[in-house]
Amino acid sequence: MKKRTIFPYQSQELNTIFEEAGNNAKVMCIPIDYAKKEHVVMFCNGHGNILRKPFPIKNSPKGIEYLTQQVLSSCHHRGIDPKYAFFGGEDVGSYAENFINTLRSGGWIVAGVNAHDAKKQRANVQASTDVLDLMGIASMLLNRRANCSPAQTGIYRNLRSLTRHRKKLVDMSTEEKNRIYTVVDQIFPGFLDEKNTGISPFSNSSLYLMADRFSPAQIRRRKRQKLIDTLRRYGTVKPEVSADKLQLYAAHILNTPTEYLSALQISLAQHIKHFKCLQESIEQLEKEMALWLAQTQGAFLTTLRGIGIVLAAGATAEIGDPTKQKPVANLVSYSGIIPRVKQTGGPEGQTRTGKVSKRC
């Protein structure tokens, strides 16, 4: 059970290490300044005394092997039990994730500290060197202001990766839509307005027409019956009405100069291909998200009206395993669904309750 303390941001895992060791001199803290090729490492004890000056470690299997050998050797030399040794560094970048995961899989405790808070602990806030960074990280670790548990692990981490990747693809798809709108407005102004043509924008019918030598003249030259058959084949609800409306509209707009039309058509066709590719990728990711979501408690969210696979997967991925998260009060505050309260002047002082945050 988590202990109540006036230091809510201290790591319970690090507190346990210091308590079980019984003496800060019997604790080894190993701050790491992560980098892409070579990390910088330092050894110090629980009192903050430097046991080994900063030295480089390769971001490779050999680097991890050498580091663990040095830690074990230093612990043996100073009579420190290796179970009271722990690593820590600023929030790790993608280039060092495998390094950290390998250490954790070896049974070592690896803590993460907030980079902004670690900067405040440096002796010189204005300057930035590997040694100064390590001192700031070490100070945070010895004050036990760190997080030893990754936000998400296992299924929840995989689900978070998929949901965030999907979000990026949706953003790219939106950007591609805007580019398509720009080109279409030059070739066939108003085509992507359903009121003008009777065809839903970015439907299968509209995408097919835009990808094939698209222009008002080409639409006018199409035989009515063939155009109707095409629209019906690609899912248009009322193909006859849409075909008549489209050809009528095509006859009453300004045409692009012939010398520019070919280049615009090629550009539009490539944008359409890219857009379709993004849509296929998004659909595939949503299927994978559904499979991972089904293995979590978050699957029950889909039983609520208005919550589908995407929303349920996103919420579940960001919250993580509910059995390993902070109290519900912290989660409610983070979600922004409770008002901000301000109170001063003693127990009988006036309490002011603000509005609910807009983060939700």
Rank of each mutant, 00 (worst) to 15 (best):
K3M: 02
F7S: 02
F7E: 09
Y9M: 09
S11Y: 06
E13D: 13
T16L: 07
G22W: 10
A25R: 13
V27P: 02
I32Q: 00
Y34P: 04
E38Y: 13
M42C: 10
G46K: 02
N49E: 15
P54Y: 02
P54A: 04
K62T: 12
V71I: 02
S73Q: 09
S73R: 13
C75I: 00
G79N: 08
K83A: 11
G88R: 04
A96Y: 07
N98K: 03
N101L: 12
G106H: 08
G112F: 06
H116G: 04
S128H: 15
V131Y: 14
V131E: 12
L134V: 02
M135E: 12
A138E: 10
M140W: 00
M140S: 03
R144L: 12
I155N: 09
L162G: 06
R166S: 12
K177Q: 15
R179T: 01
R179F: 05
R179M: 12
Y181K: 09
S200V: 10
F202D: 03
S206C: 05
Y208N: 05
L209N: 07
A217G: 04
R220S: 15
Q225H: 00
A243K: 14
K245V: 01
Q247W: 05
A250S: 14
I253G: 13
T256P: 03
P257H: 09
Q265P: 02
K273Y: 09
F275C: 08
C277E: 15
E286S: 03
A290Q: 10
T302N: 08
T303Y: 07
T303F: 01
A312S: 11
E318V: 15
Q325F: 12
P327E: 11
S333C: 01
Y334M: 06
G336C: 11
V341A: 05
